[in-house]
């Protein structure tokens, strides 16, 4: 009678990930705000960005930040849709749009970070 039509995924994992990524984002966000607003002009010029991006560890932090942010954002968006009863085809369509948009977003963000040159 009750048959899974779309997925056997209960969402338990995404629920845990949403909380873990959320907490991590709070930590990253605090760092981000200190960096950007400690001084009126801190970190907003091209030189400042270029300087930071010379450190590979900083790039890794940035890549992690954008990955977590986009994951959390799109998983949250899916969480909103999941509150409503949907036909399987609609669910699959929305999931597909969210996945493709999320991945496109991620590639876009990564591309910006990788495009900043290393200068010796």
């Amino acid at each position: 009678m009750y048959k899974y039509k779309a997925s056997k995924e209960t969402g338990a994992k995404s629920w845990v990930f949403q909380r873990i990524t959320g907490l991590a984002l709070v930590v990253f966000m605090i760092g981000h705000y200190i960096l950007m607003h400690y001084q009126p002009e801190s970190g907003k010029t091209y030189e400042a960005v270029l300087y930071r991006m010379q450190f590979s560890w900083y790039r890794i932090i940035d890549l992690t930040f954008v990955t977590l942010g986009i994951y959390h954002g799109f998983n949250g968006l899916w969480g909103i849709f999941r509150d409503y009863d949907m036909k399987p085809w609609l669910k699959i369509t929305i999931i597909s749009i969210i996945l493709i948009a999320g991945l496109a977003f991620l590639v876009w963000g990564y591309n910006i970070i990788f495009s900043i040159p290393y200068i010796n």
């Binding site: 954008v66 986009i70 954002g73 799109f74 949250g76 968006l77 909103i80 977003f105 963000g109």
Partner: peptide, 12 residues
């Protein structure tokens, strides 16, 4: 949450 997702788009 929705506002922040829109913002992260604008931010990138």
């Amino acid at each position: 949450g929705i506002a922040l997702l829109l913002y992260i788009f604008m931010h990138i």
